[in-house]
């Protein structure tokens, strides 16, 4: 049977097999995030990139916690209503995370598949060497190191998109490594041999047989990469504002600051990781003292929720693809 004749049957398998509950939960949660992002685009249009501060809220004593008027409480330092801050950050964070994951996933799958298909070739050795070498530095530190130089030359308003591309370009090694292993194994399967005997080119074998059946490792790695992205976005602002030995603005409620290599364009930029990192300074103000939990809890829930939504979607998609294969 020719390849083209087999295609409708192959696709029919996917059509007949319904999505599992995990995939529906993932899609539902992601749809919720997208709906929140769209509503933020409408409500905050014209000022989407800047939080509107209220000077009276910058250092309130005592801190203003959640209430009926302000369900998420007030975040001092920024001087903002936390509900608005988290809401306004949604479209930005979705764009950042999905952009990074798209580049990371596509590169990891493609590079890993090419290396696996040409096992033992110069390409395979180069990919393995490069991924091992890049893996020598934690991605969150490597991005900071590279960005420390890039921000010297890049204009501030473009640094966020440069960051998305750069992080995506540096996260591919773990996915590529696992895809390579899977493709190595798949390339020995009879159906690939049969396709080759039918005269299919390497490119056709790669895109028609190997890549669709090797997406499992990429889908397993993607939720892990979400954690790496938010680790980067939250840890450096926290360290810079709270723990650095360089003198800061003083004890008590802080004025938000960004480390020099930060990809965010301004100190009032709405972004969950930055809000989480900065809020931890004031939430854990005095060791042994009270914990102002609302300051870090809501940005944290937004991050964890998005990560779980992506994990559900990836797990469900992987199971659905596995059935079709």
């Amino acid at each position: 049977m020719s390849e083209d004749a087999a295609r409708p049957r192959h696709l029919a398998v996917y059509r007949r097999h319904p999505f599992g509950p995990q995939l529906w939960i993932g899609i539902g949660m992601l749809a919720f995030y997208v709906a929140v992002a769209v509503s933020a685009l409408i409500v905050f249009r014209g000022s989407l990139g800047t939080l509107s501060e209220n000077f009276a809220w910058q250092s309130p004593l005592p801190p203003i916690g959640p209430s009926w008027t302000y369900p998420f409480g007030i975040l001092p330092g920024f001087g903002v209503n936390l509900l608005d801050a988290v809401w306004q950050a949604t479209p930005w964070d979705l764009a950042i995370v999905l952009g990074i994951l798209a580049i990371d996933g596509a590169l990891g799958a493609l590079i890993g598949a090419i290396a696996g298909l040409h096992e033992g070739s110069a390409i395979d050795h180069a990919v393995t060497f490069l991924s091992d070498s890049l893996g020598a530095i934690p991605a969150v530190i490597l991005v900071a190191v590279i960005f420390a130089g890039i921000v010297l030359a890049a204009p501030a308003d473009r640094s966020l998109w440069l960051f998305v591309v750069l992080f995506g370009l540096l996260l591919w090694p773990p996915s590529a490594r696992t895809v390579r292993e899977r493709v190595r194994e798949l390339a020995q399967r009879p159906y690939v041999e049969a396709s080759r005997a039918n005269g299919a080119s390497d490119r056709r074998i790669l895109f028609r047989h190997l890549l669709p059946n090797s997406l499992g490792p990429v889908l397993a790695q993607i939720p892990v990469d979400v954690a790496a992205v938010f680790f980067f976005l939250s840890v450096y602002p926290w360290f810079f504002n709270c723990a650095s030995p360089y003198p800061g603005p003083g004890v008590g409620y802080h004025v938000p600051g960004l480390p020099p290599f930060s990809p965010l364009p301004s100190t009032m930029f709405p972004e969950w990781g930055y809000q989480l990192g900065f809020s931890a300074c004031d939430a854990f103000l005095v060791p042994g003292g009270p914990i102002y939990w609302w300051m870090f809890l809501f940005p944290l829930l937004a991050i964890v929720g998005l990560g779980i939504a992506i994990a559900f979607a990836c797990d469900g998609l992987e199971k659905w693809l596995r059935f079709g294969a």
């Binding site: 938010f230 990192g277 779980i308 994990a311």
Partner: peptide, 20 residues
Amino acid sequence: ITTLGFGLVPAFIIALLIEF
């Protein structure tokens, strides 16, 4: 879910909670 959710919480939040 527990593993993933726990992995998404940055280490400094867990460390600060335990220290406090």
